[in-house]
Design a binder for these strands. Structure first.
Lengths: 207, 207
DNA sequence: CGGGCTCTTGAGAGCTCTCAAAATCGGTGG
DNA sequence: CCACCGATTTTGAGAGCTCTCAAGAGCCCG
């Protein structure tokens, strides 16, 4: 771990970092930018957001004075950060996640937590911005990624669980699967087993 | 940090932990249970969920073979975990977050990440299970918690940002605020400033 | 005073939910 | 092996909520 954070950020948050100002609407970092810094809001407000190709936008969080943001597991930022109003932040060099000792306990748990943040954040985007059919497609692709046989899925959970995971009702889940079947995108071997017939089409549902 | 995780969990994940079996539908831990262990799924599937008083349920994640779960910032689990089907897990003693050195870099970042997980997870629940008015009420309470003057809110962001944060449209946000105003729950001093007139009522919208 | 942006309000369409019932599946006992 | 039972899943019809489209009102700034 090569980076450093101040030891007493409440008392002297600016001591070891660089102070920066951003005007209203200014971009602090964009999706894909390398994640070299961890940032602390001193004054103002920051929004963390993702823009989709179809014009939809998703805001994952607002950060106000005292909030830390910009931590990433990988080298690139997964979402952009923009100043909502005139904002002052301090940024510190980001810790290096590819730590010297690969099996270090710290690193191991860090990775589990980072993965959890990414997954939860992705789940929130799904819940906030997708239609029922889009949610279902995303869910099937998620299952597919876990499955050993790529195009053959076994759903361990009942429809009610899928519904509660996607923020839908059982009936809507069922209707969605029926529609995908009618479209020839999937084939239902049984209620809990299905085959993906047209992977590009399934992917295409969410662009 | 008093806990330990195996150094080579892929090769011998059971070495330093305790193996446990759970039958279908069995509860692994419930909301509020003390978070004493970190768990790794060996075989089967686990769902992490919250049950609401009105019968609604929210599933935050499914964990399959190889997934780690049960990490918590505080002493109590924030959601319950249940076996979707017959499942085998290994559990390890949880790291002690109230680490010996309070200002340890590791601990400092852990806390920021844990907070982020909790917030994102709460956001996902909001997006997945609440109606427009409930989302808006939750958002105002969130802002209120940040505000210095408890009942007087200044919204730094435009309606579009609120909409993109809550998974709604600008119009629905506007209509929601209008409804709260009609109900006498809030008063709009200007578009960006409002006063909470009836805090219990605002809280009551989400039980 | 004018122009652009933000916010509000209205009307209608569309999507998802609710309620209800039929169909299918899985397990159990005869 | 078959019949039965409960749980799960599917399907249908209608209601309700949120979105879309459109227009008007309010506000800031030049």
């Amino acid at each position: 771990m090569s980076g450093a954070l101040p030891r007493h950020s409440d008392q002297a948050p600016r001591a070891l970092g660089t102070v920066r100002h951003f005007a209203r609407h200014q971009t602090i970092f964009a999706e894909g930018d390398s994640a070299l810094h961890v940032m602390l809001v001193i004054h103002g407000m920051v929004r963390s957001c993702r823009n989709f190709s179809d014009g939809r936008r998703f805001i994952g969080a607002f950060y106000a004075s005292g909030d830390l943001f910009g931590l990433e597991r990988n080298e690139a930022h997964i979402s952009s950060a923009e100043a909502v109003c005139d904002t002052t932040i301090v940024h510190y060099p980001a810790p290096d996640w590819r730590a010297p000792v690969q099996d270090d306990l710290c690193t191991r748990i860090f990775n589990a937590m980072m993965k959890s943040i990414e997954q939860t954040s992705g789940h929130a985007q799904l819940l906030g911005r997708l239609s029922a059919l889009e949610k279902l497609a995303a869910f099937l692709l998620e299952c597919s990624a876990r499955s050993k046989i790529p195009n053959l899925l076994t759903l361990d959970m009942p429809r009610q669980d899928i519904a509660d995971y996607l923020g839908l009702t059982v009936e809507t889940v069922s209707r969605g699967l029926a529609q995908l079947r009618r479209d020839g995108t999937i084939a239902l071997l049984s209620a809990r087993q299905l085959r993906i017939l047209n992977l590009p089409a399934l992917r295409g549902i969410n662009d």
